[in-house]
Amino acid sequence: MDDQVRIKLENVSYTYEEAAAPALSEASAVIREGEFLAVLGHNGSGKSTLAKLLNALYIPTEGKIVVCGYDTSRDEYVWEIRRRAGMIFQNPDNQIVATVVKEDVAFGLENLGVPTDEMLPRVESSLAAVHMSKYADSAPHLLSGGQKQRVAVAGILAMEPDVLIADECTAMLDPSGRKEVLDTVRSLNRKKGITVVWITHFMEEAAQADRILVVSDGKIVSEGTPREIFSNVERMRELHLDVPRMTSLAGELRRDGMPLKEGILTVEELAEEVERLCPLKSGI
């Protein structure tokens, strides 16, 4: 097996008990080492099912998933998979177990049977990596949503994972909390080379990924860089997903005849294109 591949899905389908249609059907994908991959889709598209499959919380009804070299359907690998591919969830309140921040970060280590004297340095360095050292002795319920999610990230980080799966972990946060968590995870991706699977319905977040998988009605419907994905404004509208406002504005201007380049995502990029097409002359 290619050692660059962190996660491989081969024709994966998953049907919930007593459900008529599969929540995810015939999904195939490869996630590479060090990559920041966004999975974009609306509620009920199957993106959360995908997340749970990657963590061996669900086992595919058909097909096969290999995470860090381990087949998720094999019972004996379950704990190794969960250690190597840690997951953070949507509701910040419902994933913190302990009554003190540092003890919550240690929860995973306790479960793995890490010796007590090794725990403290790992807990401390994980909290430092998410900039939460100051709150090590705080009670979690007094933290903001963004801070709680960073504690959750630290809890995963302490287990020294290869992959971080974020299952809509910003959906319940305000804009500053969202930015705080995304920035933290992005810096872990860049500095520590942790592979990230970022599941979201916010296109602003997906736009910052290396690559996007778009999920709709239980299928992976497209795949590509943010520029490739968002350029197809019509397609995204059909899927009830947002496109960056500057991308859709640029699209409309192109339709009006203005020869803007494809793949504009940000305010800066559109401003530059306007400058190129309408050079300032003295007098305007």
């Binding site: 201007l253 203005m258 306007v274 305007i284």
Partner: peptide, 29 residues
């Protein structure tokens, strides 16, 4: 764009308003 010297009203905040003005700039150019 205004800070770079473009002649735009200062109080545009809707994409559709901006679209008209950008088209105007392009046609003038």
């Amino acid at each position: 764009l205004r800070s770079r010297g473009y002649n735009l009203p200062e109080d545009l905040y809707r994409p559709e308003e901006l679209r008209e003005h950008l088209l105007r700039l392009w046609k003038e150019a």
